[in-house]
Amino acid sequence: MSVTFTRPLEPARPLEYTHSDQGPADPVLGVSNLCKSYSHLTAVEQVSFVVQRNEIVGLLGPNGAGKTTTINMILGVLAPTAGTIHIAGVDLARHRSRALARTNFAAVYATLPGNLTVMQNLRFFGMVYAIARLTERIETLVQRFDLNHLRDTRCGLLSSGEQTRVALAKALLNKPQLLLLDEPTASLDPSAAQIVRQEIRQLAREESCGILWTSHNMYEVEAVCDRVLFLSHGKILLEGDPRALPGEHGAHSLEELFIRLAREPLHAQEHPK
């Protein structure tokens, strides 16, 4: 398959993150030269990027591109082979608990314990994150995500949309400076997905946090993300504004660009026309 680009595709210039003492302008996430290798496989190779406050960054790529591996490393459940991760200025490798106290996440594959009710889950995780004035915080989130009528319902009995709302409430318990959302709308109907997207955009503004968002829904990415990173074979191939990138690379839409990159990223990179 031949791929035509109006502008040669070059690997995205790595954004080197240099850690300094945290100030207000410091990124909430600084990833530098991140690598993850297994015995016969390099899942992530020299990935560097930053996420700023109030910014929503989309992490895109085909299945197996290294998105979830990257997210798992940022969440501290997977150790990088090389590279560093700073969350709000705190080195994750050296100060794991301190760094993870500044972040939180929601993912379709990490549902909350189904045998606890909504309130029990929020209290439990609130204590794990050692949230001050927990009852007050939970009430705010229950109202925000319209969970009042589900307070005493076990999470395992909730619909996908309701579970997503509870997961988002849990993800915001600690007012994270960095929020990781791995396909947060994957199991939602279009109406519920739109509400969740609006909520998240509002959150990024109000809570002044940075968001790293993965999704396979390119319409959603265009609507929500300020910037996207295209990941393929463990490397960042492209980076930029999701609304401008397709035009810059001769594609009609972000989805078309995604498909081209997913099918022949290495060919396109090595033999641009």
């Binding site: 969440l75 608990s97 106290a101 939180n104 996440f105 990490a110 045998n115």
Partner: peptide, 14 residues
């Protein structure tokens, strides 16, 4: 049983 490892160990819990 409740597949809670990711939620737990991606938190500040030591």
């Amino acid at each position: 049983w409740s597949r809670n490892f990711l939620n737990l160990f991606a938190s500040p819990l030591s």
